[in-house]
Design a protein around this nucleic acid. Structure first.
Length: 201
DNA sequence: AATGTGCTCAACCGCCCCACT
DNA sequence: GAGTGGGGCGGTTGAGCACAT
């Protein structure tokens, strides 16, 4: 049996059904059962040695996949959705300072993952920069034309943006996200309590 | 209501680094 | 020093959703 993601199954839905039947590595969206297994395994054995986790837990996943799922989704301290205006400002400032070092940026934002920040940057900031850049070109300011956001040269623009952003946060379209269509990590918490393991990481 | 388009974000890929032998 | 394996990181992909037409 396989529980599919509630409504919002995302990610690469690669064709896995045949191969997983053959006992090879499974890919694509995680099911609730898999989350359940991984979550409980890590609660009982701790993090690290991800290949061992993958094997010992019985999950037909790679160690990398287990690690990613844990870090980006299952970890108890992970915060989901609603990147605050302050966090957005911090991200912009840190990116100006550190560049695309998402994991380093994430360290300054407790509960936020590098993946989340990276996605946020690409979907919000990068697009905003593109729009403002186009606006500048239209306005006759050609200095910034041709600059991509992956360039380190974008740092200056990011700083400018951070300044204007701090002044007009509301114009930046802070994204409200609803996670109601996902199963929550909280849904898994009672399980470990039932197992008699009360130690939370 | 149906269709098209753009956006979001979970997950994979490939590369790199580090520790160990 | 060379080889190997595990883990971490950044870039990219693509299914599903939301909104527009």
């Amino acid at each position: 049996m396989e529980t599919t993601m509630k409504k919002k199954g995302r990610g690469k839905a690669t064709i896995t059904s045949q191969k997983e039947e053959e006992g090879t590595v499974r890919k694509g969206p995680w099911t609730m059962e898999e989350d359940f297994i991984l979550f409980n395994y890590i609660l009982n054995h701790g993090e690290g040695l991800w290949n061992s986790v993958a094997k010992a837990s019985g999950l037909k996943r790679t160690g990398k996949s287990c690690r990613l799922r844990w870090l980006n989704y299952l970890r108890p301290d992970v915060r989901r959705g609603n990147i605050t205006a302050e966090e957005q400002l911090l991200i912009i400032q840190l990116h100006a300072k550190l560049g695309n070092r998402w994991s380093k940026i994430a360290k300054h934002l407790p509960g936020r993952t590098d993946n989340e920040i990276k996605n946020f940057w690409r979907t919000k900031i990068q697009r905003h920069m593109k729009v403002s850049s186009e606006h500048m070109i239209c306005s006759g300011n050609s200095q910034s034309s041709g600059m991509t956001t992956t360039d380190q040269g974008s740092s200056g623009k990011a700083i400018d943006m951070a300044e204007s952003f701090s002044q007009a946060k509301t114009t930046f379209n802070v994204v409200e996200q609803s996670n109601e269509n996902y199963w929550n990590v909280e849904d898994l918490w009672p399980v470990h309590l039932l197992n008699g393991d009360h130690h939370v990481i």
